[in-house]
Amino acid sequence: MLKIDKLSKTYKGGIKAVNNLTLQVDAGDIFGFIGPNGAGKTTTIKAAVGVLDFDEGDIFINNLSIKTDPLGCKRMTAFIPDNPDLYEYFTGIGYLNFIGDVFAVEKTERERLIQKYADALELTGNLGNTIASYSHGMKQKLAIISALIHSPKLLVLDEPFVGLDPKSAHTLKIIMRELCDAGSAIFFSTHVLDVAEKLCDKIAIIRDGELIACGDTEMVKGDASLEEVFLELTENA
């Protein structure tokens, strides 16, 4: 579903954020992407969803290149950034309807999915308020709902659990599993290694822009905990 092929990205000033990174996320996978701060996780994620240009390599979503067919790729993808900065002049429902419009989600399906996910995340009652009045957690929930209402084949999330209360975090995990069981793929970054260990089928560890481990969760962590493996790989390598 998502294939990152020899991706490299250098920022102004010569800082190489990602270097020759290759990985693949298959349909049905929940793929965790972990690494220390500044390792290149957000750069990789933003490049994968077409928010950021990159210098070398290519990224394919369902065999379409983000370089040559960005709109085709974006139609299949949903993205939630690490900080849910949404249009504060919209009401919650107005924003969801805007996302429904640009993804051309059919009216009844749109209403059904908004109801379903807003109820699950307990945000329905607040959807009539302007986003400016939302707390960080409410904005995060709204961003999650907006990502789900167009039934994406690929869901890319940057630190999705930050700001969510425990119940909503639990609900999100269930939704993520349901989506993958239905054939979608999820690629997400997190610093919560417990969540990654329990939730992910596959894990990649990045440090200084390069992959230092990648594969099935069981294979990556072996007999140790993911935390132990992470600390060993990122400190000793």
Binding site: G100, D101, K107, R110, I114, T124, G125, N126, L127, A132
Partner: peptide, 16 residues
């Protein structure tokens, strides 16, 4: 901000 917490999903206007 003035807020309320009793919103119910109503029929939505669809646009291109």
């Amino acid at each position: 901000n003035r807020t309320a917490s009793d919103y119910k999903i109503k029929p939505l206007n669809v646009s291109s």
